[in-house]
Amino acid sequence: MASAVDLPHPAASDITLGGILFALSDPERLAIARQVSGGPTDMAACAATDPDMPKSTRSHLFKVLRENGVIRNEPNGRRRTISLRRDEIDERFPGLLDAILGASAE
């Protein structure tokens, strides 16, 4: 049986303000970040995205968030667990996540 693959994540020192702002500029990606801000979530159970959305689109949303250092996407048995990299982002950009995630969706 094949094991789940560890995906690459940027080091905390490589997370950029522009990357975070880009990753969270999409309403679907922002909804995912808001959902996982409450704690780790099983990727398959992430209710932030449209259930009718193609799997490839969902995967791309998670990939953009991961590659820009907003989330961790780690194997957990046969599933994947998504978590917000809050501590690392808050250390580099204090208050940024609170400002973005707490902003109204208007």
Results as ranks from 00 to 15, higher is better:
48 A>V: 05
26 D>L: 02
19 G>V: 07
62 F>R: 06
56 S>P: 07
57 T>F: 10
3 S>H: 09
74 E>S: 13
98 D>N: 08
15 I>F: 01
1 M>F: 14
30 L>T: 09
99 A>V: 14
74 E>L: 12
50 D>W: 06
46 C>N: 11
72 R>Y: 02
6 D>F: 13
16 T>F: 15
80 R>F: 09
99 A>T: 09
89 I>D: 00
94 P>Y: 10
77 G>M: 11
69 G>F: 00
23 A>T: 08
90 D>S: 04
66 R>S: 10
60 H>G: 10
76 N>I: 04
39 G>Y: 03
84 L>S: 06
61 L>R: 13
89 I>M: 00
27 P>A: 07
28 E>F: 07
14 D>E: 14
81 T>P: 03
57 T>H: 13
91 E>P: 00
37 S>T: 03
56 S>L: 15
44 A>M: 15
82 I>K: 00
38 G>N: 10
25 S>P: 09
77 G>Y: 12
8 P>F: 12
73 N>E: 11
47 A>N: 06
52 D>T: 15
12 A>L: 11
3 S>Q: 13
19 G>F: 05
25 S>Y: 06
67 E>D: 12
32 I>H: 01
71 I>W: 03
37 S>F: 01
13 S>Y: 05
93 F>N: 00
13 S>F: 07
22 F>H: 07
26 D>S: 03
18 G>E: 14
87 D>E: 14
93 F>T: 02
23 A>N: 08
46 C>D: 08
104 S>K: 13
9 H>N: 14
96 L>M: 10
70 V>Y: 00
10 P>Q: 04
32 I>E: 06
88 E>H: 02
8 P>K: 09
71 I>K: 01
56 S>A: 12
85 R>M: 03
56 S>I: 15
95 G>C: 11
34 R>S: 02
45 A>Q: 05
87 D>Y: 00
14 D>Y: 05
88 E>Q: 06
82 I>H: 01
10 P>R: 04
102 G>F: 01
100 I>V: 15
